[in-house]
Amino acid sequence: MKHAACTREDEVLALVSRLHGALHDPDVLAHVEECDTCAAMVSLATALRTDRDEMLRAAHVPAAGQVWWRAALRAHADAAHAARRPIVWLQGIAAACLLGVATAFGGAVWGTVHDGVASLVTRAPRLDVSVDIGRVAGVLQPVLPLAIVIGVCLLVTPVVVYLALSDD
C-alpha cells in the first residue's frame, strides 16, 4: 500500500516527542503548516501525549516491593511445580507398569481360568447346589485367587492413574 510519506516525518515526530507537543522551531513549524501528513501526525501525537500525561498523573501502580514479593512467591511456586513434574511422570510410569504386569499375569493364567470355567460348565448339570456347597467351593477354588487379583487391579489401577496424572 502506498501512503503519502513525508521525508521530514521522523524529524517532526522527534521534536513533538521531545517538546511534549509544542513546536517552537520556526522551520519545522513552517513545514507543518504546509505539510498535511506532518500536520495530521502532530495533531494526533499531541492528542496522544496529552492523554498519556493525564493517565500518568492518574495511574496507581503497586509498590515495587509488592511486585517483587509477588514475583518471588510465584517463582517459588513455579519451581515447586517444576520439581514435582518428574515425580508425577514416575508415578504415571509406575501405574503403566502395574497395568502391564497385571495384563501379562492375566494372559499367563488365562489357560487355567479357561480350564476352570470349562470344568465348571461340564459339571454344572450334575451339581446339586442346595445339597453340596462344599463341592461347589471345591470347583471354584482354583480360579478364586485369580479373580481376586483381577478385581483388585481393576479397582486400584484407575485410582493410581488418577493420582499420577492429577497435578494437585
Binding site: 516491593g65 517483587w68 514479593w69 514475583a71 518471588a72 512467591l73 517463582a75 517459588h76 519451581a79
Partner: peptide, 18 residues
C-alpha cells in the same frame, strides 16, 4: 526461602529492581 530463591532466579536484585 522463596525470596532467597528468587534472588538467585531473577536477573536483578531487589534494589536494582526497585
Amino acid at each position: 526461602g522463596a525470596l532467597d530463591a528468587a534472588e538467585r532466579t531473577f536477573q536483578m536484585d531487589e534494589e536494582a529492581f526497585r
